[in-house]
């Protein structure tokens, strides 16, 4: 038997208050973050910076436009809240990459860097002579991570559009399945629409997958000595988190529609109105639904919806929920 309880061991060993006493995993990794107007790029380098990577943020002399993206114009020291959050643990420098002298310095930095993150339109860095094809010649170990709205190849890759979270969310398939269904006519028409998630989740999931790809590439470089090019499309990254929806279409040739606060795979499994707020409630399996209907003293509900097949009918959800909320 161990002397300490497991929970005490975990607290002692993972306690963030002691973080400063311990080494940082990525302390020998140098990252150049030249992302512009993209919280996908900024979030990717934030994650690496939290674990000790030396992240050098390279902005144009007038600053990254991302500094202006902020709720209702609220700022701290003239910088938006979103950028304040994603500026953590990074060195901030400026360099005008449209000027030859700026590019010369950038190339010197790229020679010594492990990772480069950029979010310009596909081909822009290449057209300036500082894309992956040029930089890998002077630094074959460089891991070059590019994040863009449509990725760097495919018919839409040449589109002249910047990458924005709301468009990523739209293309991800998640907006399609989020929101109040068209057939819930008790809600007004303008409320029955595909709905994006509140936070910039397309950008953030894209950035998370970018950081994951960078870590995979760093591991591969340990084995092979080679760097590589990483093509991140945030909409694809967010689509990757859409459960089984693509498989559902492949199998049934039907799409999962908007399901409000319900889940097509589980019911009861939803948010219900309580006396003083909202609470999550689940009672899916026959035994759990029996328990739930016993607790609320509604045996009639289990007679009406006796099996999971009855309970997984979309028409059941709002009606049964309304009864539970009573």
């Amino acid at each position: 038997m161990e002397e300490k309880s497991w929970h005490d061991w975990a607290k002692e060993n993972c306690d963030p208050f002691k973080a400063s006493e311990k080494p940082e995993a990525l302390s020998d990794v140098v990252v150049l973050d030249v992302s512009y107007g993209s919280f996908a790029g900024l979030y990717a380098s934030s994650l690496l910076a939290e674990y000790g990577a030396k992240v050098i943020r390279i902005e144009p002399p007038e600053g990254d436009v991302a500094r202006k993206m902020t709720p209702y114009g609220i700022k701290i020291n003239n910088t938006g809240l979103a950028y304040i959050v994603e500026g953590r643990n990074k060195y901030h420098i400026t360099l005008d990459l449209t000027k030859e002298e700026g590019r010369e310095i950038f190339i010197e930095m790229a020679k010594k860097a492990d990772v480069l993150i950029e979010t310009y339109k596909p081909g822009y860095m290449d057209s300036l002579g500082i894309g992956y094809r040029q930089l890998r010649k002077i630094n074959p170990r460089l891991i070059y991570c590019a994040i863009s709205s449509y990725g760097h190849f495919g018919p839409k890759a040449k589109s002249n559009k910047n990458d924005y979270d709301v468009v990523d969310q739209a293309m991800s398939g998640m907006a399609w399945t989020t929101g109040i269904p068209e057939e819930y006519e008790e809600f007004p028409e303008h409320a029955r629409v595909p709905t994006k998630l509140g936070p910039w989740i397309g950008w953030y999931v894209g950035g998370g997958f970018a950081a994951f790809g960078i870590m995979v590439a760093l591991w591969y470089r340990l084995m092979s000595g080679k760097g590589q090019f990483i093509d991140v499309c945030p909409a694809e990254a967010q689509a990757k988190t859409n459960n089984y929806y693509v498989q559902y279409y492949h199998t049934k040739k039907k799409v999962v529609g908007r399901v409000a606060n319900f889940d097509p795979a589980v019911f009861v499994y939803t948010i219900v109105r309580a006396k003083d707020g909202m609470a999550f409630m689940a009672g899916f399996s026959d035994i759990n639904f029996y328990a739930l209907t016993s607790i609320i003293d509604r045996p009639d509900l289990r007679e009406k919806y006796p099996t999971i097949h009855h309970r997984l009918n979309p028409e059941t959800w709002p009606k049964c929920l309304a009864e539970i909320e009573k």
């Binding site: 997958f209 790809g213 591969y220 092979s224 080679k226 093509d231 694809e236 990254a237 990757k240």
Partner: peptide, 17 residues
């Protein structure tokens, strides 16, 4: 048999998923 899901993300030039 025949299945479909979202491909590996991101796309890597040297060691793809």
């Amino acid at each position: 048999g025949s299945l479909a899901e979202v491909a590996p993300v991101p796309k890597l030039s040297e060691s793809p998923g």
